[in-house]
Every structure is written in C-alpha cells, then in structure tokens.
Simulated scan of single mutants.
Amino acid sequence: MSALNIRHVDKTFGSTQVLKDISLSIDSGEFLILVGPSGCGKSTLMNAIAGLEPVTSGEIQIGGEDVTWHTPAERDIAMVFQSYALYPSMNVRQNIAFGLEMRKMPKAQREEAVARVAELLQITPLLDRKPSQLSGGQRQRVAMGRALAREPQIYLFDEPLSNLDAKLRVEMRTEIKKLHQRLGTTIVYVTHDQIEAMTLADRIAVMRDGEILQLGTPDEVYNDPVDMFVAGFMGSPSMNFIPVTLVSGGDGYVLRVLDGDDPTGAPLELPWPAERDAQALQARVGERLILGLRPEHFVEDETRMETSFDGTRLEVMATVVEPTGADILLQATLGETEATMRLGPKSRVAAGERVALRVDMSRAVLFEATSQRRVA
C-alpha cells in the first residue's frame, strides 16, 4: 500500500470553482473518509485522485510519485462505484478476472486471485452466477472483489453502499471494516452518510462548498467541531444549537437562556465550567453566542446516580417523545429552540409532561453567532 498526498488542488468548471485549495496527506494503510452534503465536491475530489477528472491546478502524489497528469491506468488504483458496473453477460468469476485479463496476467495467477478474493468476501458459491441472479449486497461484494483482485496501491470507494437497503448497508459496512483490518489497505471513501464515516474511518475530512472544513479522527470531528456546520452535520440526531448570552456569574460565567416555557420570563441559566477557556471568554461577556449540546449530553435526573452522570439540573416540558428501541428521543423547548434529548429506554416520560434532567456542561461547546466558528 502507498501514501497519498494532495497539494493545493483546485478544480474549476467554467466560472465555477468546485475544489478550492485542497491539501491532504493520507498515510499508507489509512482509511480516510470524505464526507459532506451533496454538491460539496467530494466526488469531484475522488475523480481527481482517480484521474477521471483533470485538476485545474495543484499536485497529486501516490507513493511519492507525481501522478497529477497520469491516466487512470497509470495510477495503479482500484475504484468501487455507487453503481456496481458489472458486465451483465459475464458470470461473477469473469467479472472479477476481467481487469486482470486486460493486464495480461497469466491464467493460473488470475484463477488464484479470483479464488482468494472470493473466499475473502464469501462469494465462492456465486462464481458461476450472472449479476442478474445476485442480490444487491452480493453484487456489491463482486464489485469489491474485482477491485481487490488487482492489489493496487490505493482503493477508492465512491458511495458504494448508497443503493443498498438500511439493514444490508449496516452489514456491508461491517464487512468493509473487517476487510480493512485484515488487509491494511489504503482507502479513500466518499459518503454523505455521517454514520458510515464515524464507524469506518481512521480520519474524516468534512467538506462544504469545495473546501475541507475539518480533518481529524472521528472523535475529534464529533466532540471538537471547528464550527456549527461540522457540529450539525456529524451526529444523528444532530447537535442542538441554543442562542444564549454570556454573563458573569459569581466566580465564573453563566449562559443565560430565555425560558420560553415560563410565563414570567424567568431566565434559564447554565453555568459554564470554570476550568474551560475562562480567559478566552473574558472579552465576550454580554455577547450573544450559540450553545451546542448533543442529545446524549442530557439524562433524566433520577438516573444520574446509577449512571455516574453529574451536571446542571433543569426542568423541561416534553413536546414529542420518540421511542427508538435502544433509547428514547425527547423533544423539548429550551428558550427559543426545540431541542432533542436522548434518554434511556426505560424512561416513562410522556408528551405534555415536565421532566427533570441533568445536562453535562463539561461537554458543551460555544460558537459565535455570526461567523458560526467555535470559540470554546
């Protein structure tokens, strides 16, 4: 396997710049995921790495070699597409072996490679079937097998699971994870599904409007987002964004939220942890900020001793209760915001009831209201 280096890559279609000064370094054997909304440029970047789309400027290196202007065949990469792109007239064995045959690999070696990947992907009983006789998951395994048979320097996956149903997508995600752990391959993987990104990646690059907003491990991107876009895009349900005012309170700072449930207008105040960014907040007293709290930062008050969960106590009115089996999603109003809280499956709260919660402010984040950049 080989490292991949992308340096200051731009791509323009007419007057529209779709990639803006992209720089990435991917270590040999690393699993990098490009994630972002539709139209953010992730598939264009993937096509540029593959050589399917020439860059406007910048440099792409594979294994230390400049391949910026090499054809796809000269780059020694294998790509798995969203569409399976299997030859309908060929059986599974022939589909997997076709690329090897085009590279003039001897027949004995081709057969050995087909047998190896078929066993690896557990598709040996399917080798004599045509694609029309396979399920969606089996077709995707064949497409992966065709790429794996080649043993290239880098594998590129362009939304390979998006055509599968939810259950099969989870199963194939697990198979891809196992495959990477067994082979230690270098993989660049494009998806719009942030759950896929969190579960598969060594590192995640979050893209928007042709730029990489944040590059980091799943934990870094999830728990230390650089701005509100990254914070809201990663996580399901997404982070709650609550407008607050920062005020001085005793020995530290307090985030004041207007309690819309209280007819007297009494403010809801959440203390900011004294040990976090006290100096950085000094100049922001009186400023309107955005408090970011994830649904799992809340827990019912009576369960906190059982779960070793401490935090600031508050009461909310449940407006919507959504049981999911593994947990319960509760929607309640915090100030001007309809917030989502994730409670345990044994919770008995019903819509229209008031419920006492604890919120873990040690995991909260703060953003500027205008720039949406993180400040603490």
Score class of each variant (00 low, 15 high):
Ala364Glu: 05
Ser15Cys: 08
Ala147Glu: 14
Asp165Val: 10
Pro243Gly: 00
Ala85Phe: 07
Met105Val: 15
His70Val: 00
Val221Tyr: 04
Asp76Val: 11
Ile49Arg: 10
Ile33Tyr: 12
Lys107His: 15
Ser132Lys: 13
Asp261Arg: 01
Phe157Glu: 08
Leu293Glu: 02
Glu53Met: 15
Val285Asn: 11
Pro243Ala: 03
Val9Ser: 08
Val92Phe: 03
Thr185Glu: 11
Lys20Trp: 11
Thr174Gln: 13
Ala3Tyr: 11
Asp27His: 15
Arg354Leu: 03
Met79Thr: 14
Ala147Cys: 08
Arg288Met: 05
Arg348His: 12
Leu215Lys: 06
Leu268Cys: 00
Arg294Lys: 04
Ala48Ser: 15
Glu302Gly: 09
Asn91Cys: 11
Ala205Asn: 07
Val67Asn: 05
Ala364Trp: 04
Ala113Gln: 13
Leu100Met: 13
Leu200Tyr: 14
Glu59Ala: 05
Arg363Gln: 12
Gly344Gln: 11
Pro243Asn: 01
Asp158Val: 13
Trp272Leu: 00
Val18Lys: 00
Ile123Val: 01
Thr337Gly: 00
Ser248Met: 09
Val221Phe: 11
Ile195Tyr: 05
Val226Ala: 06
Val35Pro: 15
Ala73Gly: 07
Val18Arg: 07
Gly39Pro: 11
Ser162Asp: 02
Pro218Ala: 11
Ser23Lys: 04
Asp10Leu: 01
Thr333Arg: 08
Leu164Ile: 05
Val114Leu: 05
Pro54Asn: 04
Thr264Trp: 09
Gly63Gln: 06
Asn163His: 05
Pro88Tyr: 09
Met79Phe: 08
Ser43Phe: 14
Asp251Arg: 12
Ala118Trp: 02
Gly325Phe: 02
Leu314Ala: 09
Val226Ser: 11
Leu86Ile: 06
Ala149Phe: 05
Leu100Lys: 08
Ser135Pro: 02
Thr324His: 14
Val321Lys: 10
Val80Cys: 04
Thr56Cys: 07
Ala369Lys: 09
Met361Asp: 03
Arg116Val: 04
Arg93Ile: 00
Leu134Cys: 00
Met361Leu: 13
Thr186Ile: 01
Glu300Phe: 07
Lys167Leu: 02
Ile176Lys: 08
Gln181Val: 10
Glu275Cys: 03
Tyr222Cys: 09
Thr185Cys: 05
Ser83Trp: 04
Pro271Cys: 03
Thr324Asp: 05
Glu30Tyr: 10
Tyr222Ile: 03
Gly63Thr: 11
Glu315Gln: 14
Ile22Cys: 08
Glu296Pro: 06
Asn47Thr: 07
Cys40Thr: 12
Pro295Ser: 08
Leu19Met: 14
Leu34Asn: 14
Ala351Thr: 06
Gln194Cys: 14
Gln133Asn: 07
Met102Ala: 12
Ala283Leu: 12
Glu119Ile: 02
Val142Phe: 07
Gly145Arg: 06
Ile123Thr: 00
Gly63Leu: 05
Glu338Asp: 12
Phe298Arg: 02
Ser162Cys: 08
Ala78His: 14
